[in-house]
């Protein structure tokens, strides 16, 4: 496969619309689709000693849960509406940074995300994924409303 589209998915309705949009685009252009699920994670948070000890175990659990509860049902749904060449990936990190990284690692040609629909105040305070991605992405970004 020479060309791929990366789409961010977190289980929300807007992310589902983004995935459907990306699937249609991928099918029409006969390119691959990478569904990326990013688990929000910062290496600079504070943990108690007990949490340190269990972190590796919890990480495995969180990845497994993401696969079971979020990615697998989505894949079934996508298969039923046309399928295509679909791969999934779950990673920990900052959502925008990680989507950009996955896109450059897989040499994708496009990133598709859904709009979170935060009020402008919340976005002003915390920044939005779409805004951050627009600044950091190595390839064109499509935001699906």
């Amino acid at each position: 496969m020479t060309e791929q589209i990366v789409v961010g998915y977190d289980g929300s309705p807007s992310a589902r619309r983004a995935v459907q949009f990306a699937q249609d685009a991928a099918l029409a252009r006969e390119v691959g689709l990478i569904v990326a699920h990013v688990l929000e994670w910062s290496p600079y948070t504070f943990l108690s000693p007990q949490e340190l000890e269990e972190r590796h175990m919890r990480r495995e659990e969180e990845l497994k849960r993401a696969d079971h509860a979020i990615l697998r049902p989505l894949i079934m749904e996508l298969e039923s509406r046309g399928g295509g060449d679909i791969t999934t990936v779950s990673r920990f990190g900052n959502i925008a940074e990680m989507l950009a990284r996955i896109a450059s690692e897989t040499k994708a040609s496009q990133i598709v995300i859904g709009r979170t629909g935060h009020s402008s105040l919340a976005s002003r305070l915390f920044g939005s994924v779409a805004g951050a991605l627009a600044q950091a992405a190595p390839v064109p970004v499509t935001i699906v409303p």
Partner: peptide, 21 residues
């Protein structure tokens, strides 16, 4: 740090926890 190890305990977190003790 290898970005693929994200989600594991980072050096910062180990230091911060040891320091809070």
């Amino acid at each position: 740090s290898d970005p693929n190890d994200a989600g594991e305990v980072s050096h910062f977190q180990a230091l911060a926890t040891a320091l809070s003790g």
